[in-house]
Design a protein around this nucleic acid. Sequence first.
DNA 1: CTCTTGATCTTCT
DNA 2: GAAGATCAAGAGC
Length: 202
Amino acid sequence: MDKSAETTPPDGSRSPGPRLRKSFFARSVHEVAPDLIGATFLVNGVGGIIVEVEAYDQTDPAAHSFRGPTPRNAVMFGPPGYTYVYLSYGLNWCVNFVCQAAGSAAGVLLRAIEPTHGLAAMRRRRGVTDAKALCSGPGKLCEALAITKALSELPIDRSPIALHARSGGAEIATGVRIGLTKAVDLPWRYELKGSKYLSKRF
DNA sequence: CTCTTGATCTTCT
DNA sequence: GAAGATCAAGAGC
């Protein structure tokens, strides 16, 4: 009764899979990024299904790690399975998961989430009511989940963070990354095809 | 609907 | 001193 490849719901009706461990991130960022689409990400019980991410690696002129370690990006040069949170344009926090291996400095940027847990808290923090506006961007989702520098450099397999694998399959689309001035043509953005909760309408 | 602009401040050169 | 992995509001069509 469930061979509906074409009537697959945007997501949210599927139950989360097993909890992810740090080892999930110990491989190429270009394998991890698409596998994160459909995963469930919660901070203190608030969050939802990851529907859009972008990959960055050390060979990438757009990556924060491209020019080598600095105090800000140091965690990217450490072991995989940790958060890297930074302040964008002086206003918005953005969160990444460190991938690959110590020294390789690759990460996945979370760009959009389909809200499923703690909608009331998200609406309060964001000051908007439309579910499609709560987590449809890297800065928005951090505000909705109350992610700040205090959540940086934390392991992804321990409270207050919970990450669960996608349980079934997912139809994934790719595209160029958003908001960059360098390496603008690399197709390293991944999204859940047809989701109504992406950072833009494509 | 699309396009443009201002806010705001940390980081690195 | 300039740039930046963004967002929201306002103008124009």
